[in-house]
Design a protein around this nucleic acid. Structure first.
Lengths: 193, 193
DNA sequence: GGTATTATGAACCAATCGGTCCATAAGTCA
DNA sequence: TGACTTATGGACCGATTGGTTCATAATACC
């Protein structure tokens, strides 16, 4: 019909996601987003609405992407190994350079916006529930294939892992010692044996 | 010598602490603080410096208070029971009313400011280290008094609890189901047996 | 090539941000 | 009571906040 967009919407959204992920909602200004996304104010507002709508879109993109990634990792190989790899990866992903780590955006938002924003809170509830379901499924599989010896209810064991997840993500974001965290993971994972 | 302060400095600091605790650093404006502390702008700046300095003072007051509280709880009764009470209290303290829970200010700041503020980050590192030390001490005591059966190194067990702590605090702040969290604690604490 | 349609950049907006300044009120001490 | 010291409230500051508006440029279609 007419003049086409000069930017890739999905790619711009990804840049916004990265910025919100690193700095959180309040500390991210529209100027930050404009620079990161590389487009002009009117384009941004036309394509995404305001700051809050852009944030929610970026957050949802993050959640979907991470959900798929988790599902994929947990499906590979013996369940116990898959679960271990899932947690090890969190530590390994922490920026090796001096750059501060980003942690998990859902966890970050559980702290920042969830207490005062029902729409964010409900998303995070869903994230935890989804994570519990995936862990439960993986643990049940591990109890079948013999890689997980603990015969407690899979759901209960899963909840322990769900509890450990934000703990690990917070410590990673606060620049916790990676070697030490890996060591602690040994003990956590030995609970499954 | 001259006109005395009309406000109690410690009490005003406590109000600031509460506000920063609930809303975080960025989402708290000077206007919020003025209202919460009940004093005028010039008084606030004269007594506490700027926003950041006030925040650090409030944060340190929080950390000291909580550190003492933890120490006290862990010292009471058999070590295993004391540790259990410490964790149960975190869940119980979550606002029973509809009011959103505040979680732990150190954990909240591990997410919000720590990645970009070395002064905050070092405080949080110290908090984690202190917590690890207190847990280690309590667990060692429990291994002596027989309330803790697990004979793994006390320090390693302590690190597992240190990992669980931010996990629990984040879930509480995001309005996680209290009953379910208490149930999950059972499994975590059974690691000590 | 002309026309209709749409994306873009810049100018502009009120409101709020954290922070400073100062005249005045309210005390203390001699 | 008078002199000195200090706390207080309000006016004021420039910068930045998120957001809107509009003239212009660029493209697709006929």
């Amino acid at each position: 019909m007419a003049r086409p967009q000069e930017f890739n919407t999905a790619e711009a959204l990804r840049q916004a996601m990265d910025t919100f992920w690193q700095k959180g909602y309040e500390a991210t200004s529209m100027a930050d987003l404009l620079k990161a996304m590389g487009l002009s104010k009117s384009s941004l507002y036309a394509a995404f609405g305001g700051k809050r709508e852009l944030f929610l879109a970026a957050f949802d993109a993050y959640r979907e992407e991470r959900g798929r990634e988790m599902q994929q990792i947990l499906a590979q190989g013996p369940a116990r190994d898959a679960i271990e790899q899932f947690f090890r990866k969190i530590i390994a992903d922490a920026g090796d350079g001096g750059a501060p780590s980003r942690g998990c955006m859902s966890i970050n938002q559980a702290v920042e916006l969830a207490p005062r924003d029902p729409e964010v809170r409900s998303r995070i509830s869903r994230d935890f529930a989804g994570m519990e379901a995936l862990f439960t499924q993986a643990i049940a599989r591990g109890q079948m294939d013999g890689s997980i010896g603990n015969s407690d209810e899979a759901r209960n064991l899963a909840r322990l892992l769900v509890l450990a997840f934000p703990g690990l993500q917070v410590m990673v974001r606060a620049d916790g010692d990676r070697e030490q965290l890996n060591q602690t993971l040994n003990l956590l994972l030995s609970t499954l044996d």
